[in-house]
Computed example of a mutant assay.
Amino acid sequence: MYFPKQIELIEVGPRDGLQNEPTFVATEKKQILVKLLATTGVKRIETASFVHPKAVPQMADAAEMARFSLGQGLSFLTLTPNQKALELAIQNNVTQIAVFVGASETFNQKNIRRTIDESLVECAEMFARAKEEKLFIRGYVSMCFSCPYEGAIAYEQVEKVVRYFVQHGVDEISIGDTNGQANPKIVYERFKKLTEDFPQTVFVGHFHDTNGLALANILAAMQAGIEKFDTSIGGLGGCPFSPGATGNVATEKVVSMLHQMGIETGIDEQCLGQASAYVQTMFL
């Protein structure tokens, strides 16, 4: 088995983790969480989304969170699902953006009300604009293994979106098990094929723990050469447009597993524990 010396974990709790919470979390509480996460040693934090507040009310304070993150000197990502969102991010001096497209046609329609092809055309325009501003670009590919609406997702469906992202010069691509139904076999096979077909591309694994297989899936992805993963403090998360999807894999569980395996993350477990404990109080 392959065990890398070091793994990078990208903390997505403040955005992907909180977006599905039905009750608005006060901006001040989100800022405390981000501040606590910054003390752990995690290198990048996804802090907000410039999505329309009617679609995801939890992200209505995106501009405030961006300004706060800049003030803290953080390396942070914000989600920009469309051209208008990108312009808002630019106005707020964001330096790293993320866009997403589903590998499932039905999911993409329900999520952003566009076909995959329509989404890709808009992505091309956004990528060109982002490059003008010299922004770091992350591409999310959602529903890369199965879909609650379409069932099993073929490799070709994932490859189509990945290839488009690669051709347009994204800096990294996060491959998502959005509904948490993947297993280690398909995870290994899919990442192995992706890394063979796109050997120069930086891939990130993004797993939900719906069936309790997220840690096993991370291990499987590592065997295919993946050394970057999205995780969420306290296992926060879920996709509002994916029925049955539960939380992202918990950052503290991944860190504990990797450290026990002798793999470095640069993350302090004691500080991480403090951030995780704070999460339990955020909804009181």
Rank of each mutant, 00 (worst) to 15 (best):
residue 180 G to S: 07
residue 99 V to H: 08
residue 268 D to N: 15
residue 190 R to T: 15
residue 234 G to I: 03
residue 216 A to G: 14
residue 214 A to I: 07
residue 128 A to P: 00
residue 133 E to T: 02
residue 258 L to W: 09
residue 5 K to F: 05
residue 248 N to T: 15
residue 232 S to D: 06
residue 198 F to Y: 13
residue 257 M to L: 14
residue 5 K to I: 10
residue 89 A to H: 05
residue 105 E to Y: 00
residue 284 L to K: 08
residue 259 H to P: 09
residue 202 V to D: 07
residue 164 Y to K: 05
residue 275 A to P: 11
residue 175 I to E: 07
residue 252 E to D: 05
residue 204 V to C: 08
residue 1 M to Q: 10
residue 89 A to P: 12
residue 217 N to T: 14
residue 25 V to T: 13
residue 284 L to E: 03
residue 47 T to D: 10
residue 244 G to K: 03
residue 273 G to L: 01
residue 129 R to K: 14
residue 44 R to D: 10
residue 252 E to I: 12
residue 16 D to Y: 04
residue 254 V to E: 01
residue 177 D to V: 10
residue 21 E to N: 07
residue 255 V to Q: 02
residue 91 Q to G: 13
residue 98 A to L: 11
residue 222 M to G: 01
residue 268 D to A: 05
residue 173 I to N: 09
residue 106 T to Q: 01
residue 203 F to R: 15
residue 55 A to R: 09
residue 49 S to A: 13
residue 57 P to K: 03
residue 99 V to K: 12
residue 270 Q to G: 01
residue 174 S to E: 00
residue 188 Y to P: 04
residue 272 L to T: 01
residue 25 V to P: 07
residue 78 T to H: 02
residue 15 R to A: 01
residue 123 C to Y: 12
residue 115 T to L: 05
residue 4 P to L: 04
residue 270 Q to T: 14
residue 111 N to E: 04
residue 199 P to H: 05
residue 55 A to N: 08
residue 283 F to G: 00
residue 11 E to V: 09
residue 174 S to G: 11
residue 279 V to A: 04
residue 122 E to L: 03
residue 229 F to R: 12
residue 51 V to D: 06
residue 101 V to H: 06
residue 41 G to V: 05
residue 227 E to P: 11
residue 158 V to F: 00
residue 164 Y to I: 02
residue 112 I to P: 10
residue 18 L to A: 12
residue 103 A to S: 15
residue 281 T to E: 04
residue 191 F to N: 06
residue 236 L to Y: 02
residue 246 T to M: 00
residue 132 E to Q: 13
residue 275 A to I: 11
residue 68 F to S: 09
residue 182 A to V: 13
residue 245 A to D: 07
residue 168 H to I: 08
residue 37 L to S: 03
residue 170 V to Q: 06
residue 200 Q to D: 13
residue 83 Q to A: 08
residue 199 P to D: 04
residue 158 V to H: 02
residue 249 V to S: 02
residue 195 T to D: 03
residue 134 K to Q: 13
residue 227 E to L: 07
residue 30 K to A: 06
residue 98 A to M: 14
residue 144 C to G: 12
residue 66 A to K: 09
residue 270 Q to W: 03
residue 56 V to Q: 03
residue 92 N to W: 02
residue 163 R to S: 15
residue 2 Y to T: 09
residue 101 V to I: 15
residue 27 T to G: 02
residue 113 R to K: 14
residue 241 F to H: 12
residue 165 F to K: 13
residue 222 M to I: 15
residue 57 P to N: 02
residue 119 S to P: 08
residue 25 V to C: 05
residue 32 I to N: 04
residue 264 E to L: 14
residue 140 Y to A: 14
